[in-house]
Amino acid sequence: MTKESTFNPEHQADNTASKVVAALERLSEAFRVLLWHEAKQHGLSPIQVQILTFLLHYPEKLKTVTHLASHFNMTKATISDAIKTLEAKDLLKRKADVYDNRSHTLLLTKAGKVIAKKVEKFAHPMQGSVNAIPPEKQAVLLEQLMDLIHDLNHQLIITPQRMCFNCQFYEQKGKTQHYCHLIRTPLRAGDLRLDCPEFESKEEE
């Protein structure tokens, strides 16, 4: 028997899960619109904006084609093409690995940092909407979204994220309590991290 479509309004009326999925799809559209609008203003593509923003904030050890491809769920070829364009625009440069000339770290140029600080503001409207939600509800929403992301990781729909639920230091105690063994303290829902600098994969245990 064929399942009802998530996007059928009549089906949605009596199916909360379908309404949640449809709402998430609307939010993804909003994100794409904001990203495209910002990218066009600077003659960039959406993924180029995302790469510049990533390189502005993340540690040098993660500034590689391999990690960018994993982070954005894209092929290395797609990321490499975007990087070549950014290089041609003098927005980033490559730093060869001392021990492996085939490996490079990607660094923003001075001009690249200026542009990155401008384009990263594309998410401000969405941030404003989230800020309007009471803090306690933000924490609950964060926890629920991370549960969804974690499940999608297990389904191999998106690559595993560097978040608490995938980290070897994380432990869920009972149904609701979160605990970090690195800092040896319980975590509130609002303390959970979607991308943690101290993340270590459970596979590396």
Rank of each mutant, 00 (worst) to 15 (best):
F54G: 00
A69P: 05
H71M: 12
Q50P: 06
H67S: 09
T66D: 11
V65G: 06
T53Q: 05
H67G: 01
L52P: 04
F54Q: 01
V65D: 00
K63E: 04
K63S: 05
K76C: 05
P59N: 14
A77C: 04
T75K: 12
T64P: 05
A77G: 10
H57I: 01
S70F: 08
E60L: 11
L62D: 04
L68I: 08
K61D: 10
F54I: 03
P46I: 05
A69M: 10
I47G: 03
I47S: 03
H67C: 07
Q48C: 06
L68F: 09
A77N: 10
L56V: 11
T64G: 05
P46W: 06
Q48Y: 02
T66L: 07
T64N: 08
Q48T: 03
L62Q: 04
S70E: 15
H67R: 11
L56R: 13
P46E: 07
L55S: 00
T64V: 10
L62W: 01
I51N: 00
M74G: 09
S70Q: 15
T53W: 04
L52G: 01
T53F: 00
V49N: 02
K76D: 11
T75V: 11
M74T: 10
Y58V: 10
F72Q: 11
K61I: 09
L62P: 02
E60K: 15
Y58M: 13
H57Q: 13
L56G: 08
T66P: 03
F72T: 10
I51Q: 03
P46V: 07
N73F: 15
T64Y: 07
L55M: 08
P46G: 09
H57A: 11
A77P: 01
H67Y: 15
H57P: 04
I51M: 06
L52E: 06
I51E: 00
V49F: 00
N73M: 11
H71N: 14
A77H: 07
K61S: 11
Q48D: 03
Q48W: 02
Q50I: 03
K63P: 00
Q50W: 02
K63Q: 14
Y58K: 09
